[in-house]
Measured scan of single mutants.
Amino acid sequence: DHWEIRVGDITIHLKDVDEEIIRWVEEALRNGDDLEEIKRWVEEVLR
């Protein structure tokens, strides 16, 4: 699977990601969370 999350001008590409993570990231972006923080979290989860 390949996911693209778009929020404003930001697009995040994710592969082999659980839908729950996608929802979490979308929510975090909508809440204005720091992008670097989100990326770190996702990388942590995917490890």
Score class of each variant (00 low, 15 high):
residue 25 V to C: 02
residue 14 L to E: 01
residue 2 H to E: 05
residue 28 A to H: 10
residue 42 V to L: 14
residue 36 E to R: 07
residue 38 I to V: 07
residue 9 D to V: 11
residue 16 D to A: 11
residue 17 V to N: 03
residue 21 I to C: 04
residue 27 E to Q: 13
residue 2 H to N: 09
residue 21 I to F: 10
residue 9 D to H: 07
residue 25 V to L: 09
residue 40 R to S: 06
residue 9 D to Q: 10
residue 12 I to Y: 15
residue 34 D to N: 13
residue 12 I to D: 01
residue 18 D to E: 06
residue 21 I to T: 06
residue 42 V to K: 00
residue 16 D to S: 12
residue 19 E to H: 12
residue 45 V to D: 01
residue 11 T to I: 08
residue 45 V to H: 10
residue 35 L to V: 11
residue 26 E to D: 04
residue 36 E to D: 09
residue 3 W to A: 02
residue 38 I to T: 01
residue 36 E to I: 07
residue 11 T to E: 06
residue 27 E to H: 14
residue 23 R to T: 05
residue 18 D to N: 13
residue 4 E to G: 06
residue 39 K to S: 05
residue 17 V to Y: 09
residue 23 R to D: 01
residue 31 N to H: 10
residue 43 E to K: 09
residue 5 I to V: 07
residue 26 E to A: 15
residue 9 D to R: 05
residue 14 L to G: 05
residue 21 I to S: 02
residue 4 E to V: 15
residue 8 G to V: 05
residue 32 G to P: 10
residue 23 R to Y: 03
residue 8 G to T: 03
residue 14 L to D: 01
residue 47 R to E: 06
residue 16 D to L: 12
residue 8 G to E: 04
residue 1 D to L: 15
residue 44 E to G: 04
residue 3 W to M: 04
residue 46 L to N: 01
residue 47 R to A: 11
residue 37 E to H: 11
residue 8 G to Q: 04
residue 33 D to A: 10
residue 47 R to D: 04
residue 23 R to A: 08
residue 2 H to K: 09
residue 3 W to I: 05
residue 41 W to H: 08
residue 36 E to F: 06
residue 21 I to D: 01
residue 42 V to M: 07
residue 25 V to A: 04
residue 19 E to Y: 12
residue 43 E to M: 15
residue 46 L to T: 03
residue 10 I to R: 09
residue 19 E to S: 12
residue 46 L to I: 07
residue 2 H to V: 12
residue 45 V to Q: 15
residue 1 D to K: 13
residue 31 N to W: 07
residue 42 V to H: 00
residue 13 H to K: 10
residue 21 I to Y: 03
residue 12 I to H: 02
residue 25 V to I: 08
residue 47 R to P: 03
residue 12 I to N: 01
residue 47 R to V: 09
residue 36 E to V: 05
residue 22 I to S: 04
residue 40 R to N: 05
residue 29 L to M: 08
residue 26 E to K: 15
residue 30 R to Y: 07
residue 9 D to G: 08
residue 6 R to K: 08
residue 37 E to A: 14
residue 2 H to P: 11
residue 6 R to G: 03
residue 18 D to G: 12
residue 11 T to V: 07
residue 20 E to W: 15
residue 9 D to N: 08
residue 13 H to N: 08
residue 43 E to H: 13
residue 11 T to S: 09
residue 18 D to P: 13
residue 44 E to V: 06
residue 31 N to E: 03
residue 18 D to Y: 14
residue 24 W to D: 01
residue 40 R to L: 05
residue 5 I to R: 02
residue 39 K to L: 12
residue 42 V to E: 00
residue 10 I to Y: 13
residue 19 E to P: 14
residue 8 G to Y: 06
residue 40 R to I: 04
residue 43 E to V: 11
residue 11 T to R: 05
residue 33 D to G: 11
residue 8 G to R: 03
residue 18 D to M: 14
residue 14 L to R: 04
residue 25 V to Q: 00
residue 15 K to V: 08
residue 35 L to H: 05
residue 25 V to T: 01
residue 36 E to A: 07
residue 42 V to T: 01
residue 45 V to E: 09
residue 32 G to R: 09
residue 46 L to G: 01
residue 25 V to G: 00
residue 27 E to M: 15
residue 22 I to L: 12
residue 43 E to A: 14
residue 26 E to F: 15
residue 17 V to W: 07
residue 47 R to K: 09
residue 24 W to F: 06
residue 3 W to P: 01
residue 16 D to H: 13
residue 1 D to G: 14
residue 28 A to C: 02
residue 5 I to N: 01
residue 31 N to R: 15
residue 30 R to P: 00
residue 39 K to I: 11
residue 13 H to I: 13
residue 33 D to K: 14
residue 35 L to K: 04
residue 46 L to Q: 03
residue 10 I to G: 03
residue 16 D to Q: 10
residue 6 R to E: 04
residue 19 E to W: 13
residue 43 E to T: 11
residue 28 A to F: 09
residue 2 H to I: 13
residue 23 R to L: 06
residue 32 G to T: 08
residue 47 R to W: 03
residue 43 E to F: 15
residue 3 W to K: 02
residue 22 I to C: 01
residue 31 N to A: 08
residue 4 E to D: 04
residue 1 D to T: 14
residue 43 E to P: 00
residue 13 H to T: 13
residue 20 E to I: 11
residue 27 E to G: 07
residue 44 E to Q: 13
residue 12 I to F: 15
residue 9 D to T: 05
residue 9 D to S: 11
residue 15 K to L: 06
residue 27 E to V: 12
residue 28 A to P: 00
residue 44 E to W: 13
residue 15 K to I: 11
residue 14 L to F: 11
residue 18 D to V: 14
residue 13 H to W: 14
residue 19 E to C: 05
residue 28 A to Q: 07
residue 47 R to C: 10
residue 1 D to R: 09
residue 1 D to P: 09
residue 41 W to I: 07
residue 26 E to L: 15
residue 11 T to C: 03
residue 15 K to S: 05
residue 42 V to R: 00
residue 15 K to D: 08
residue 21 I to H: 03
residue 34 D to L: 14
residue 20 E to A: 11
residue 5 I to S: 01
residue 12 I to R: 01
residue 17 V to I: 07
residue 40 R to Q: 05
residue 7 V to Q: 04
residue 33 D to S: 11
residue 31 N to Q: 08
residue 3 W to L: 04
residue 29 L to W: 08
residue 17 V to H: 07
residue 13 H to F: 14
residue 29 L to S: 01
residue 28 A to M: 11
residue 1 D to W: 14
residue 44 E to A: 12
